[in-house]
Design a protein around this nucleic acid. Structure first.
Lengths: 224, 224
DNA sequence: GTGGACAAAAGTGTATACAGTTACCGCCTT
DNA sequence: AAGGCGGTAACTGTATACACTTTTGTCCAC
C-alpha cells in the first residue's frame, strides 16, 4: 500500500479530501506532516503544499507552529454557506431557464440518471459527490466557469457536513428533487424552477442532523 | 530598500498583490522565484508559497516547469465574474433590506463618506479598494462571513481589470451610486435597492475600457 | 500524591542542495 | 543570411538539512 502511481501534490490533496469527506479522518484529527510524507512516499515539501491547499478549501485548519487539523465546521458556517448557495442558485436557475436548450436538458437528465444509480449503491462519498455535481453541472452548462468553480468550492466546503449527516433516504430525496427541477427547467417554468431549487436547498440544509460516528485516529489506517 | 520588517509569506503576497493591482507589474510579466527571493531577502520556499497563494486568487498564473506570470484576465472571465456578482448581490441586497437596522445604515453611510474623500485623492489603488469594500461591508453587516469572503475574492479577482480601466469619473459615479443604494436600504425600499444595485454593477462592468498603460518589466523597480 | 520546572522528543518553519526541465546563445550547415 | 542543432546557463520541482517552537515525560520539591 506504499506505492501510488504519480504522487503529485494533487493526488495527495485528493486522497486527503476523500479521506476527510468519507469521514475516515475525524474532525480534529491532527495531520502530522512527516507521517503523511511517509505514507505517500514523498517529502514534507509536497505534503505542506497539499495541506495549504486543503486549508484554502476550509477542509483543514492550520495552526501556526502547531500543525494541521481536520476542520470541524461550525453549524453556523454551514448555514452561511447554504445562505450563499440559495442566493447564487436561485438566480442561476432563473437565468438557466432563459437560456435553456434541449441539449442542456439532456445533459442534466443524464446526470440525474447517474445519480439515481449511485444513490442505491454503497459508495457514500461518490453518491454525495454526484449529488453536488448536479449544481456545478448547471453552472457549467450556462457557460459560466467562474460560477461553476465557486459553487464547487461552496459545495465541497459543506460536503464535510452534508456527508457527515446525510442519510440514504435524504440522498434519494435530493435525487428526486433534482429530477423535478430538470422538469421545470425543460418546461421553461421559471418561477417553479426557482422555487423548487430554493426548497431543495432548504431541505438539504434542514436535513443536517448531528449524530457523530466512530473516529479513526490512525492516519495510515484511515488512508490505506 | 532590502530590509522589510517581518517578511512572512503574507507580506510577500500583499506586496505582490499591490504591485500587480497598481499595475506596476504588467500582465504577462514573469515572476522568477530567485529574483523575488533576493528582493525580499528570503528563500525561494516562502516565495513559492506566496506565488501559490496568488495563483489561487487568479492574480497570477502558474505554468508547470515554466514559472509564474502576472495574469491577464480575459474579458470573458471578467464578464463571468460580474454575472456572479449580480446574482449574489441582488439577493444580498434583498435580504439586507429585510434585516436592516439604523446601526447598519450608519456604518454604510460612514463607509460611503470614506469613499468620497478617497475618490478625490490620488491613491488609485486605495480608492478602488474602498469602492470594493462597500460591497464586502454589506455582507459583513448581514453577519455572513462566508458571503463576505467570497465577495471579497470576486472583487479582488476583477480588481486587476476594474483598476486597469476605471477612470476617476467612473469612480465618482460609483460612489454616488453607493450613496443612492444606502438611501434605498434606509427607506426599506427593497425593489428599488435591488434595482439600483444591479444597475450599479452593470455600470461598473460597462465602464471597462481597454486602453493599456506603459509596462514595467524590472521586478525590483516595480516593487521598490 | 500533586504541581512545577526542566530536559528530551517530536514537529513545524525556513533555508539550502540537488535533480530535471526549459530557455537562450552561438555555431554549423545549407 | 536563415534555420536547425547542440551545449550551457537559468529556472523550476523535490528532497534534505537545520533552527526554533511546542509538546511530553520525568524528576524533584512540597
Amino acid at each position: 500500500m506504499k506505492n501510488m502511481e504519480s504522487s503529485t501534490t494533487r493526488s495527495i490533496v485528493d486522497a486527503l479530501t476523500k479521506a476527510i469527506v468519507d469521514h475516515r479522518l475525524q474532525p480534529g484529527t491532527k495531520l502530522a506532516e512527516q507521517k503523511l510524507a511517509d505514507h505517500f512516499g514523498v517529502s514534507r515539501t509536497l505534503v505542506r503544499q497539499a495541506l495549504f491547499q486543503l486549508s484554502q478549501n476550509k477542509l483543514i485548519r492550520l495552526e501556526p507552529a502547531r500543525g494541521a487539523f481536520v476542520a470541524a465546521p461550525a453549524v453556523d458556517e454551514a448555514r452561511q454557506v447554504f445562505a450563499v448557495r440559495r442566493m447564487l442558485e436561485a438566480e442561476m436557475t432563473r437565468e438557466f431557464v432563459r437560456t435553456v436548450t434541449p441539449a442542456k436538458i439532456k445533459a442534466l437528465k443524464e446526470h440525474v440518471a447517474l445519480e439515481k444509480s449511485a444513490v442505491s449503491g454503497e459508495d457514500i462519498s461518490g453518491r454525495t459527490e454526484l449529488l453536488g455535481d448536479f449544481h456545478v453541472r448547471m453552472a457549467e452548462l450556462m457557460g459560466n466557469q467562474v460560477l461553476a468553480q465557486i459553487l464547487g468550492e461552496l459545495i465541497s466546503r459543506c460536503a464535510l457536513i452534508t456527508l457527515m449527516y446525510q442519510s440514504t433516504s435524504a440522498a434519494e430525496h435530493s435525487n428526486d428533487e433534482h429530477a423535478d427541477i430538470v422538469k421545470a427547467l425543460a418546461a421553461r417554468d421559471e418561477e417553479r424552477a426557482v422555487r423548487l431549487m430554493t426548497e431543495h436547498l432548504e431541505h438539504v440544509e434542514a436535513n443536517l442532523t448531528f449524530d457523530r460516528k466512530v473516529p479513526t485516529n490512525d492516519i495510515s489506517l484511515a488512508l490505506s
